[in-house]
Each structure stands twice: as structure tokens, then as C-alpha cells.
């Protein structure tokens, strides 16, 4: 069982709730994914559509809500959003996201570390979104992050875990859970991250933009489970030279000369 900040999670798949075509599809996809942790963002209320409220769909259910600070460009903005998120959700869980460049949406390591330090002091359960930098992961962990969330590839790109060599080092060194976030585009990517020993993965776009998001959510649940089981089972080492799977003895080949 995965434990983050004292809370246990049976499912190692976390789901983002962005870009779904409707609330109904989103709710069904969450259900199909069997996830227990879901991320949400904070935005100004659309005053033309006062009834458009995601919490009316999700609020009654027993998920752990992980509000993000998406849109924040520096530590100051992230901290402001974090406080709003805590006021709105009534919990201290926070996915810290500081992305100054709208083109790449890559996380700012310096501002993320500053914000983590401040928010942890203020009692937040901080899960920082970060580049796959093993040194930064240790610094965030030392600053009190409850988990670290290295990216597989840039947000929403569906390119998979391009950062695998660094993610492996992060996993090897971390004392806090490692959640691979961003860029995971297929159940095989999620399985790959889990096989490496990631504690969980966070997926959004790959599910919400699929032709059938509900079926894709179920497929991701299987991918995550298979990857985790494979990690626990212990993968065989990769080798460059062939090693026969079938016995080397008692082969017929030498006796088949008469076929010539």
C-alpha cells in the first residue's frame, strides 16, 4: 500500500481532471481508473456560467483532492494559490506547480524549492512537480516535501518517460514516494515508470483526450498494476548477448544431415 503523509492509497494511479469533454465522462473515467487521488486546479469563476462547478460532480465522493497551483509563475504566486486552495478544499494537500514559461510549462527549480520550504512551514502537504533532477529531488525532500513528482516529459505531450535515466536515480535515492507526473501518454508508459519502481503515476491528458476516456482510464489502471507487480516480482537483467531460453543439450541439429 502506498502511504503519503500518513494517508494510504490502494491505487497507484492519480488522475488529473482537466480537458474532459464533460463532467459525466470525467466522473466515469475516474470511476474506471479506480484512483483515489485526483488533482484539480483553481481559476476565477466564470461569471457567465455560475453553475459550472466541478465539485458538484466530485465533491460528494471520497477522493483525496490534490489541488494544484497551475498558472503560478513564481513562488509568490504559487503560495497565494496554495492558500486559496486550502481555503477552498479544507485540506492541506497541494501539488506545487511553478511554470514560468507557457510554451514548455517546465517547472522552475529555484522557485519550486523556495515555495516548498515556505509551504511546508505553513503546514501544507507539498507534492512538488519538478524536472527529473536527482539533486533537486533530494533538496525538495529535505525541505519537507511529502513526495516528489518528476516529469516524464513536458505536460500534455504524451511522449512518455523520456527522463528515465534520471527518474531511476531519483527512485533509488528518495526516502519519500516518487510520483512520475506529466507526459505519460499510454498505459505502457505508466507500466514502464512503475516497473522502474515509481510509487505512483499521475495521468491526465492521455486519458481525457482519448477517443474513449473511460476505457482508457481502465487500461491505465491495468498498466499501473502490471508495472507495479512486475517491479515487485523483480525484472531480469538486460544483456547484450543472447542467452538461450531452451535447453542447449539434446538438440537434433547435428543428426539432421540426411535432409540435405
Amino acid at each position: 500500500m502506498l502511504t503519503i503523509a500518513g494517508t494510504e492509497f490502494r491505487s497507484r494511479l492519480f488522475l488529473g481532471t482537466g480537458k474532459f469533454s464533460s463532467s459525466a465522462v470525467m466522473a466515469d473515467a475516474i470511476e474506471a481508473s479506480k484512483c483515489q487521488m485526483i488533482t484539480v486546479a483553481l481559476r476565477r469563476v466564470d461569471l457567465e456560467n455560475p453553475d459550472d462547478d466541478i465539485m458538484s460532480t466530485l465533491g460528494q465522493r471520497e477522493y483525496t483532492f490534490l489541488p494544484n497551483t497551475s498558472g503560478a509563475r513564481d513562488a509568490k504566486e504559487a503560495i497565494r494559490l496554495a492558500k486559496l486552495a486550502r481555503a477552498a478544499s479544507g485540506t492541506s494537500w497541494l501539488k506545487l506547480e511553478v511554470t514560468p514559461d507557457p510554451r514548455t510549462l517546465l517547472p522552475d527549480p529555484v522557485e519550486t524549492l523556495i515555495a516548498t520550504e515556505e509551504l511546508v512551514k505553513d503546514g501544507f502537504i507539498v507534492l512538488p512537480y519538478m524536472n527529473a533532477d536527482p539533486i533537486l529531488a533530494l533538496k525538495l525532500q529535505d525541505a519537507g516535501a511529502a513526495a516528489v513528482m518528476p516529469l516524464g516529459s513536458p505536460i500534455g505531450t504524451n511522449q512518455g518517460v523520456l527522463t528515465d535515466a534520471m527518474v531511476e536515480i531519483i527512485i533509488e535515492q528518495a526516502r519519500v514516494p516518487v510520483v512520475v507526473d506529466a507526459g505519460i501518454g499510454a498505459p505502457s508508459h505508466a507500466a514502464y515508470a512503475m516497473e522502474m519502481g515509481a510509487d505512483a503515476v499521475l495521468v491526465n491528458t492521455a486519458i481525457s483526450v482519448a477517443s474513449d476516456p473511460v476505457a482508457m482510464a481502465a487500461a491505465f489502471a491495468k498498466g499501473v498494476e502490471a508495472g507495479r507487480d512486475a517491479f515487485k516480482a523483480g525484472l531480469g537483467a538486460a544483456n547484450k548477448e543472447a542467452s538461450a531460453s531452451s535447453p542447449e543439450t539434446g538438440k537434433l541439429s547435428t543428426d539432421l544431415g540426411f535432409l540435405a
Partner: peptide
């Protein structure tokens, strides 16, 4: 300043006040 819901009745608005009304939306 973030207002606690209990404060909504007492919080009077004045000229040029800045008010942000925010809620959760879908996000990753």
C-alpha cells in the same frame, strides 16, 4: 485577503475594492 465564509455577511464592499471569486476547475 482570503475571507472565511463566516465573514461574508460582515464584509462590506467599498469603491475600488478588489474581489476575486475563485473555484476549483478540472486540471492536472
Amino acid at each position: 485577503e482570503i475571507l472565511q465564509p463566516e465573514a461574508y455577511t460582515a464584509a462590506e464592499l467599498a469603491e475600488n475594492d478588489q474581489v476575486e471569486i475563485i473555484r476549483f476547475v478540472g486540471g492536472g
